[in-house]
Design a protein around this nucleic acid. Structure first.
Length: 266
DNA sequence: ATGGTGGCACCGCCA
């Protein structure tokens, strides 16, 4: 199983980037967030030749998630239980032997705001969802834009940025509570260094080239599945005239059968 | 620099 996640910031603007990336990397599953398109306008024809089946849940203007898969996705769920808003931020499917969960966690706007409270509730609802339906021994891959930098290695300026919506105690603890149920941050299984980011704020001039980034996009796996993970990396695409998007592809590969795990740093 | 840009849909909103 090769799984990947990508925040598209409008899938209709990234069809070329996605088609190219699928062709080059041949993942089994790709989760996409911020498709920003209603289901009736989803650009299915742009992906018709890729060989992937696509499930999606969108709404007008904001949010929206999709899963590209080689195998047929089963047991699809398109909203997080207990979330009253149903804003097209959640997709779950069973694909082969794997339970795949794709989330676009609310960004939260401002600490203390209503949207921030809503973001914190998302961690509670996620924990209730996982603990209510699954066991940590199940093979789950949970990925997406989690809008949390989980420790000081995951932002370019830990002191200056501390207290912002994606880098503060409340969201870190919220995410850690869900992780505590039984998830492993796969990227950190292979790299413990600072400076590996998945998002660069486009409002900061030269932010990408100066690597003023954040690690907000994750691939997480339950213990059983994390033992099968062979590698997890951030595919940092070059930026130029054809800047693909402000996020990168995060990729993880798993052995198909239990056995030896290869672990290494950087 | 209390800004900046990009994307969507509409005359501003969210990141």
């Amino acid at each position: 199983m090769k799984a990947a996640t990508f925040n598209a910031n409008s899938i209709r603007s990234r069809t070329e980037v996605i088609c190219q990336w699928l062709k080059t990397n041949q993942p089994d599953v790709l989760c996409v967030q911020e498709t920003k398109v209603q289901d009736v306008n989803f650009p299915i024809e742009a992906f018709a030749d890729t060989g992937y089946q696509i499930i999606y849940k969108g709404q007008k203007k904001y949010n929206g998630v999709a899963i590209f898969s080689r195998l047929k996705p089963d047991n699809i769920e398109d909203r997080l239980e207990k979330d009253p808003l149903n804003e097209a931020r959640f997709l779950k499917a069973v694909i082969g032997d794997w339970i795949i969960v794709n989330t676009y966690i609310p960004q939260g706007q401002e600490v203390g705001s209503e949207k921030f409270e809503y973001k914190l509730k998302w961690f509670k609802w996620l924990l209730e969802y996982f603990s209510g339906h699954f066991k940590p021994s199940d093979r789950i891959i949970w990925m997406g834009d989690l809008n949390v930098a989980i420790d000081e290695r995951d932002v370019y300026d830990p002191k200056g940025l501390w207290g912002s919506v994606c880098f503060c105690k409340e969201v870190q603890e919220g995410l850690k509570e869900v992780l505590g149920w039984g998830f492993t941050d796969l990227f950190r299984q292979f790299c413990d260094q600072q400076g590996h980011y998945t998002f660069w704020d486009y409002r900061l001039a030269g932010g990408f080239n100066r690597n003023l980034g954040w690690r907000l996009d994750y691939i997480l796996a339950t213990t059983k599945a994390s033992a099968l993970c062979k590698n997890c990396l951030i595919d940092r695409q070059p930026r130029g005239a054809e800047r693909p998007s402000d996020h990168t592809f995060v990729v993880a590969e798993f052995q198909d059968k239990p056995g030896q795990t290869s672990k290494k740093i950087t």
